[in-house]
Design a binder for these strands. Structure first.
Length: 348
DNA sequence: GAACCGTGGGC
DNA sequence: TGCCCAAGGTT
């Protein structure tokens, strides 16, 4: 941490020296900016896919676990995605979470094929009209793919701007957002927005990191107004954890497993084990695990089912790997199948 | 404008 | 362990 004694005052104000700020940032980015697959292309669709996947999701998850590469192989163009069945789209997203993103991207492809001849819009209004595309994603696609002068604000920019401007309001409230977007608009250059926006995010990701920011190495330290970077940005408190018990059936008969498809807002379209009814009718406990979803801490219990269920459908064991399932159920099903005699008989 | 939506990783 | 975080968007 930088002490107050050694941290100098900003020698320039960002807004009064925008060109110098932009130049310092872009020069630094061109020297040390990392290469990602989505920085190697100017295909707006490929860039959009990366931006959708990266919403609230770490780069390592998207990259190291192969989601981005597999997606573009399965759905290489807007047309290919538009023609794909939703089951296949959700399967490709399995394990990434926030499944609305996958359904939005699929719907987006269908709309773009129907109304824009398969080409993504090149205007802010056009992009914002698409499902799952907000101001950040629109700005990212337009600046990264087309080098258009459009601002963007994401979690990295929250951090960089909060520190740069010594901004002590909560960044995740509407008032804070309004201020951050105003600064982003004021600072985005007319030319070279691709490198500038990339550099802004890269800075927030590396030197201007959440913990242990490396201020001495910062290319724009002369513009920075805060003396206490670690305290910024300020965020609202998150909701307290609630503990929930979840009981589901393991109903396996003649090589088929009973599953239900989610229809509500949560995990819509994905398959899960049927929920148990009355506590006193539950069979023996086969599996128990804990997982988190949003602010809930869930204990999942899987019980042996002896009766006949009316809800859900039978799925042959061979078809189960192709179904999209939420991660906690996928893990439970995999473990229980591995233990199951029926499975061993058909797979050995 | 607050609440909601998944998951895996870091400490 | 429990809590925070991560290239946000929708309701």
């Amino acid at each position: 941490m930088i002490s107050d004694a050694t941290k100098p005052e900003a020698v320039h104000h960002v807004l009064e020296a925008a060109s110098a700020f932009q130049a310092a940032l872009v020069t630094w980015f061109r020297q040390v900016g990392r290469t990602y697959p989505w920085r190697e292309t100017q295909d707006p669709y490929a860039i959009l896919v990366s931006e959708m996947m990266l919403q609230q999701t770490q780069i390592a998850t998207v990259l190291d676990r192969g989601y981005y590469e597999r997606w573009l192989e399965a759905f290489p163009t807007v047309e290919a995605l538009a023609k794909a069945p939703e089951d296949a789209v959700l399967k490709a997203w399995e394990g990434l979470g926030y499944y609305r993103r996958a359904r939005s991207l699929h719907q987006l492809a269908i709309v773009v094929c129907a109304e824009h001849d398969g080409r993504l819009p090149e205007t802010l209004e056009g992009m914002l009209a698409l499902p799952g595309v907000g101001r950040y994603t629109a700005g990212a696609v337009l600046s990264f793919a087309h080098d258009l002068s459009v601002p963007l604000v994401d979690g990295n920019v929250h951090r960089v701007f909060a520190r740069l401007f010594d901004f002590r309001q909560e960044v995740d409230r509407p008032a804070g957002q309004k201020q951050l977007w105003a600064w982003a608009e004021a600072l985005v250059p007319k030319d070279g927005a691709r490198a500038y926006n990339s550099g802004l995010m890269e800075l927030g990701q590396t030197i201007c990191a959440q913990k242990q920011p490396d201020c001495p190495a910062c290319p724009v330290r002369d513009f920075c107004q805060t003396r206490d970077p670690v305290a910024l940005p300020v965020k609202t408190k998150r909701k307290a954890t609630e503990f929930v018990e979840e009981h589901v059936w393991w109903c396996l008969r003649e090589g088929k497993l009973r599953l239900v498809q989610e229809t509500g807002k949560r995990r819509k379209g994905l398959w899960k084990l049927p929920e148990c009814g009355e506590a006193d009718s539950r069979g023996s406990l086969l599996y128990k695990a804990k997982y988190s979803i949003t602010h809930y801490r869930v204990t999942l219990h899987v019980h042996a089912c002896e009766e006949t269920l009316t809800e859900g459908q039978w799925h042959p064991l061979a078809s189960i790997p192709a179904l999209a399932m939420p991660a906690p159920y996928r893990k439970a099903v995999q473990q229980l199948l591995a233990e199951s005699k029926e499975f061993k008989l058909t797979h050995t």
